[in-house]
Design a binder for these strands. Sequence first.
DNA 1: GAGTGGTCTAGACCACCCG
DNA 2: GGGTGGTCTAGACCACTCG
Lengths: 242, 242
Amino acid sequence: MPPPNPTFSPLYQQIKGLLIQSLQDGEWKPGELIPSETELAVRYGVSQGTVRKAIDELAAENLVVRKQGRGTFVATHNEAKAEYRFLRLAADDVNTGKPKSSYLAVDRVRANSHVAKLLDIKPSDSVFVVKRVLRFDGVPQILDEIWLPASQYKGLTLERLQSWNSTLYGFLESAFGVRMLRAIETIKAVSAEPEQAEVLQVPVGAPLLLVERQSMTYADQPVELRRGWYLTDRFSYKNELY
Amino acid sequence: MPPPNPTFSPLYQQIKGLLIQSLQDGEWKPGELIPSETELAVRYGVSQGTVRKAIDELAAENLVVRKQGRGTFVATHNEAKAEYRFLRLAADDVNTGKPKSSYLAVDRVRANSHVAKLLDIKPSDSVFVVKRVLRFDGVPQILDEIWLPASQYKGLTLERLQSWNSTLYGFLESAFGVRMLRAIETIKAVSAEPEQAEVLQVPVGAPLLLVERQSMTYADQPVELRRGWYLTDRFSYKNELY
DNA sequence: GAGTGGTCTAGACCACCCG
DNA sequence: GGGTGGTCTAGACCACTCG
């Protein structure tokens, strides 16, 4: 009787790893069609069902999008359905229009220890700090302060952001090839400081949600850190629990 | 050539429906072992793979828990791993002990229109209102106000809650057979009113998270509505985005 | 019609758990 | 050793999309 293998790893997991590697290497770019399941099965020398199970998991993690009758596509932030995929703020009553960003400033500074730790860089490394406002139907609802490691976003300027007319993540994906796959948010209630109060047009001291988001790309590498102050008088942060 | 069927529903979805019905009917109770995949395959006259796919989805929705080598169990709120399954508040730094509930009051009142709407009952129907405090390491962090439709929780009293030494959902499951499967939370930032300020030991006006939760059982029937005021000085509401 | 993902089956073998 | 879920395969057929 053979001893059980202590480092057992299912075939489909190994295939999944290979697929992720190809995605990360840019063999298939965001929005593109990847090879069919049967094609990949031949390529890796496994059955089609095994490839299917690997792709199933990638689809569950939103790295890839299946479309019956058409094929499997690399997920992208540049399409209607994925716009504001990570935005959890929604109006309480009727539907609103899509939010619109106004970029206020882009600065280049040195990371403080908190930012450096969460971006997994050295405290002396330089980062871009982006400030922007998100408006729904013209009403400012979110003030964002976004830290981006300068090394991965060479050439970022306020002008380029302002001339882009879609989402930030779509821009970062198109301009720098950085794909946001996953994020962790930690939420607190705070009182508005003068800076936030002015932008969001509320009294100093008004209660705001403070949402800190750490975004990751492949291999869970952090590539963005942001702090958002959310006005929640007529909007709410929505979350589903299972 | 046969025309495509417009009301096509995969076999495994139909099996899934039958399994949910059996769960809802109490054929298998929380914590119990359900029949093996092969057994169910015989019972429903389908292949084992089809049953597997149905159970896979139930497991993904946390209605059921798979344990390799042992079998598949009906999910329950009365086990260590599922305790505080829906609680998203966690300490910022080091680990804390498990939270402890103190029940302050149970009242029987008529639902107002807001509560009635979210519980899908008539405004004149009576509901229990439970007030409690959640403490981490003895420090009060959450004040909860919980509405429960009286018709489904006959005989609920403050004494019974106080003598129960596990989670509320575990109690409601054991005492009334009501299983919380899914919930939707909407989160706002508010200023502490005197009542909350006193319990949470903060100044009036201090910023708090206001978390409103609507919990559902089978068939998405709402069976609980709660409002929690969360103190977020050393704790945060955590959320993952994909 | 040709190609893709989606379903369903049947059978083999593996890893895990328990008595 | 016997039972359970977990993996892997091969093949058939279906639903959907597009040219």
